[in-house]
Design a protein around this nucleic acid. Sequence first.
DNA 1: TCTTGACTTAAAGTGCACTCGAAGGTGTTT
DNA 2: AAACACCTTCGAGTGCACTTTAAGTCAAGA
Lengths: 144, 144
Amino acid sequence: MADKQYRIGEFSKLVGLSTYTLRYYEDQGLIVSQRDGNGVRYYTENDIQWVGFILHLKGTGLRLNDLKRYVRLRAEGDSTITERRDMLQKTKDDAEADIAELQMHLKVLIRKIDWYDGKVDHTIDDSESFHDYLQQFNDTKENK
Amino acid sequence: MADKQYRIGEFSKLVGLSTYTLRYYEDQGLIVSQRDGNGVRYYTENDIQWVGFILHLKGTGLRLNDLKRYVRLRAEGDSTITERRDMLQKTKDDAEADIAELQMHLKVLIRKIDWYDGKVDHTIDDSESFHDYLQQFNDTKENK
DNA sequence: TCTTGACTTAAAGTGCACTCGAAGGTGTTT
DNA sequence: AAACACCTTCGAGTGCACTTTAAGTCAAGA
């Protein structure tokens, strides 16, 4: 479990990013690599964790520019902790809103599938339009 | 409640797509509009429902090309119902997988926020790394 | 009459995040 | 010696879904 070192090709497979992307991220300041005597990049366990983490952030919808800002703040030290926290909080809120929206769209999709199923096995009147079918799910009164 | 007719400008506001996009969608075969004597497009309630529906599909991650295929199938009539159903089923499965992934990323994000909070109010040891902090949530055995 | 809003085609531009290729170099392995 | 993996800069290409512009026409309303 010593601090194994990985060159870019191996590291690339470990983290699931192409070597192109790794160099690109480094250009962008998202990753810092170390170099051996010949100028060849190498990475350690720490870097695996770091890349894993930024991929989680990206996975929640954070864009590269914001990710860059986050990294810059981190480099400035503890004085920026609340700012970083707030940034992640906003990212979280946005992601939760995205999920809620997705689920709302999904609900209609699922009903359309049900509607198709009803058509196929004739449990839904052949003449009923999907729009009419959908209506029945609207609690006409409390339509929160 | 007669069949009100909307010209593209008004319709655009109703459905939340720019007039550019509406014409673009029409080019792409996603929307069909009617024309008055002067060749000016108009839309009806039906079109509002249709656009609403394709926006739900898009909202679940369906790409324009697939949406086009869906519309083509629809135009072919009832014989394509199962194919359309299966298409929506796949879209649904994909969307649910996306949500699951998003939630997985979100979980880490939330823990990072908690970790920041712990740092700020000193309920987490100042020297504890986030990676170590994260570990405690891994039910080392059944790590489903 | 002038403004507004519509129409056409075709092409170019935008934003994002890569992704690739050229062209030339170094060091290690077979 | 050749193959391989790495290095550099930098510019161009990709994919997607719009978005805008150009340049010209037409018709209804104030």
